[in-house]
């Protein structure tokens, strides 16, 4: 029997990058932040508080391995031996499983600090839409959290929900945003918030003759509504920034910004690395306090 190749539409692209303008040998402190999320893992290497290298990959089934793999992936193009790291902080859902971490910091603190760095100190509201949770964080000019809310009980409105839909509709996850706008008219949002129910609702819509793009639009709109209802609880203050993989999905973000009434900030950095950047910055601050590895 011929081996059947199943395409996995939900798979997004992994990437790593190194800054050619920075020589880590000139830096006083090299700090690393590793953010092990439920779906993706990032490792960010910073030289004296500047981003030197990063790697962004999928979390496997084994948290300690994904942390090690993410670090190796980040260091792949950087000529930096692991023993030159002065401080390593683990964060995210799998932070307790980062074997080489000097300490752990919650992802809430890290995302606020990271967003402050990659979007600038004007950020007051950070929305992080991760693989399995949504965080709404308000912070001050130093990236210190002033108010936060995290919903990690229900996967409605998270990245995992979008993966389920891209798989169901056979649309590569990177194209979901664009295709959700290729509709003749904006359909009403899917009424179920729960991913499992929304999926059965979508199957029903397809059977009724809805086009793939219309179902995508209906789901993106439902996600935007769900995310907005959580944001309302904490309140949104400008400037407003979005971190996490969902920031790359125009279908949700453009619908969300209409509700919020604010334009999200833009950055040259990958929105997914914010948590790991924050962790590396905390490491740098701790090194400056004299708590780094000798």
């Amino acid at each position: 029997m011929a081996e059947e190749q199943k395409r996995e539409f939900w798979r997004w692209l992994e990437s790593n990058w190194v800054n050619p303008d920075i020589n880590w040998r000139n830096a006083q402190y090299v700090t690393v932040g590793i953010d092990v999320g439920s779906v993706s893992s990032q490792a960010v290497v910073m030289a004296d508080g500047q981003i030197f290298a990063y790697g962004n990959m999928r979390t496997g089934s084994d948290s300690p391995n994904s942390a090690t793999n993410a670090l190796k992936f980040a260091l792949e193009k950087a000529d930096l031996p692991e023993d030159k790291i002065n401080y390593l902080i683990g964060t995210g859902y799998g932070r307790v499983n980062v074997p080489m971490a000097d300490r752990t910091v919650t992802e809430i603190a890290c995302h606020a600090r990271g967003a402050n760095f990659i979007y600038g100190p004007e950020v007051r509201t950070v929305l992080d839409v991760g693989g399995q949770d949504i965080k709404v964080i308000r912070c001050d000019a130093k990236g210190k959290v002033t108010n936060f809310l995290m919903n990690d009980k229900c996967a409605a409105g998270t990245g995992r929900g979008m993966e389920v839909f891209s798989d169901l509709l056979s649309v590569p996850i990177g194209e979901v945003g664009e295709r959700s706008f290729e509709v003749d008219r904006e359909p009403p949002p899917v009424s179920s918030t729960c991913v499992v129910y929304a999926k059965s609702e979508a199957t029903g819509l397809l059977r009724k003759g809805w086009k793939t793009n219309e179902v995508l639009a209906a789901y993106c709109a439902a996600m935007a509504e769900r995310i907005f209802s959580l944001m309302e609880r904490v309140g949104v203050e400008p400037e407003f920034a979005i971190t996490g993989g969902m920031a790359k999905n125009r279908g949700v973000i453009d619908r969300l910004k209409k509700k919020v009434g604010l334009e999200p900030m833009k950055t040259k950095w990958d929105s997914q690395i914010a948590g790991a950047v924050g962790a590396a910055l905390f490491g740098y601050a701790l090194c400056q306090k004299g708590k780094g590895r000798k």
Binding site: K144, N147, F148, L149, M150, D152, K153, C154, L230, R233
Partner: peptide
């Protein structure tokens, strides 16, 4: 800092 612990699901909002 206002730390909101809890969740929101289909039945409502439960935060301390």
């Amino acid at each position: 800092m206002l730390a909101n612990y809890g969740y929101s699901d289909g039945s409502g909002n439960y935060f301390i």
